Lab assay of single mutants.
Amino acid sequence: MPSETPQAEVGPTGCPHRSGPHSAKGSLEKGSPEDKEAKEPLWIRPDAPSRCTWQLGRPASESPHHHTAPAKSPKILPDILKKIGDTPMVRINKIGKKFGLKCELLAKCEFFNAGGSVKDRISLRMIEDAERDGTLKPGDTIIEPTSGNTGIGLALAAAVRGYRCIIVMPEKMSSEKVDVLRALGAEIVRTPTNARFDSPESHVGVAWRLKNEIPNSHILDQYRNASNPLAHYDTTADEILQQCDGKLDMLVASVGTGGTITGIARKLKEKCPGCRIIGVDPEGSILAEPEELNQTEQTTYEVEGIGYDFIPTVLDRTVVDKWFKSNDEEAFTFARMLIAQEGLLCGGSAGSTVAVAVKAAQELQEGQRCVVILPDSVRNYMTKFLSDRWMLQKGFLKEEDLTEKKPWWWHLRVQELGLSAPLTVLPTITCGHTIEILREKGFDQAPVVDEAGVILGMVTLGNMLSSLLAGKVQPSDQVGKVIYKQFKQIRLTDTLGRLSHILEMDHFALVV
């Protein structure tokens, strides 16, 4: 994948999101292997301009796509893939009243899908469409860049269908997702969380590099694949309309690839034109409109599966009536509230959605109805927002919020430890010299600072030695090549209790 991002070429006709291997024109390309080798690009942008032909009021008969309808489940399912879809609609009884809503608040519980998330729908649909058009064949390999849930859905379907599955996901995604993927037989590649989507090191860039190296491999490409919004247009939206008897006044959905909100909203605009569509985008993402909503100094966020630093091709923002931004604290607070007060075992993005819903639905009156999409299960986040310690460490809970008995030293300040200034190293000294210094002084790690004293990161003896043994660096290389740029900081005025929580999850903390 090139470091400079080429513009994806656009073909003359058809839909841009065809499933299957992508040609340089962004659509299915038939021909000899030699032709494909000559024409197939190194990668295709996940934010390529959409060429979708959908228009409100256009006859369904003019759609270029294969459409399906929700099917009634048999008493005995032939395999677990038949437990994807037909998820329950559940009334939220307490939270709406707590925040003064007059309307009825309903939750579409997508964590009841077989793999635990709304992404099971698009995973199965992308595979079925690729099999139907002859792209996927027995023994082929599926590769997908994902925040985890699409990966789980694909790995689940691949396990049943017999495909090899490789999932490329950023490091910030939970260990629970990784464990589930491994249990399903998927191979996992992790990428830096802070890598831009168009960087060769991003999950998108690495996935395309693997595709170019592995024979008979395919990126189904949830960011561009029409099967993504079509899955929701054909099934999720129809289920909502049936469950609500066609009567709903507002739908609120958090947005990642945009397939969920695009597919549902398009069908609702056709069948229930008075329904307002509300999009939820986390602070630090750029999906919301108008652009002024996205202006923030924050560039990272903890909530998973929603928000991006690019506009995915499948996201149709014209069908969203209003956007709201959400933050991590309210997302996790509301997710825990949904679990504790409503018994809905949902993930953090569901918290984002409901946090926005109780604001947006203030305009609705008694007798009206708001539906929220709860995308995934708490299963993926047992060591994250479900953990009091994690919430404390991230600053989303305060010590006084917890009532468990603490040891005698818990409320003492870090400054009472009488710490001395640490050994520091410059980023320009060599790895070999740094190892000598650390061994001589008896230290395992040291902060790396520039000549102005600005902290650049941390270097550890173990990481340097393993990097040297693996051949990633040489003793003569500058130590700046092996620094940890993500590390926890703590102030002298913070409590030892807070430091204790940090050290339970990290090997060190830097006192500043």
Rank of each mutant, 00 (worst) to 15 (best):
T5F: 09
T5E: 09
Q7G: 09
G11K: 09
T13Q: 08
G14R: 06
S19W: 13
G20I: 15
H22A: 02
G31E: 13
G31K: 12
E34G: 12
K36E: 11
E37P: 11
R45E: 13
R45K: 15
P46G: 02
Q55W: 10
G57S: 12
P64S: 06
H65K: 03
H66E: 02
T68M: 02
A69R: 09
P70S: 14
S73E: 04
S73Y: 13
S73W: 13
I76T: 03
I80K: 06
K82R: 11
K83T: 11
I84P: 07
G85F: 07
P88R: 05
V90G: 04
R91S: 07
I92N: 07
K98W: 11
K98N: 11
A107V: 14
K108E: 06
K108M: 01
A114N: 06
A114V: 09
G115C: 07
K119Y: 01
D120S: 06
L124S: 14
M126W: 03
M126V: 11
D133I: 03
D133M: 09
D133G: 05
T135C: 05
I143A: 01
I143L: 07
E144M: 01
G148D: 02
T150K: 04
G153E: 03
A155T: 14
V160Q: 13
R161K: 14
G162H: 06
C165K: 01
I166W: 02
I166F: 07
I166Q: 04
V168F: 05
P170S: 04
E171Y: 05
K172V: 01
E176S: 09
V180S: 09
A183I: 04
L184S: 05
G185N: 01
I188C: 03
I188T: 06
N194H: 13
G205W: 14
V206C: 07
L210A: 03
N212D: 15
I214H: 03
I214V: 06
P215A: 06
N216D: 12
R224V: 07
S227C: 12
N228K: 03
P229M: 05
H232R: 04
D234L: 15
D238N: 10
E239T: 05
I240L: 02
Q243L: 13
L248I: 13
D249R: 05
L251G: 02
G258W: 00
G263D: 00
I264G: 01
A265D: 01
K267C: 12
K269L: 04
R276T: 11
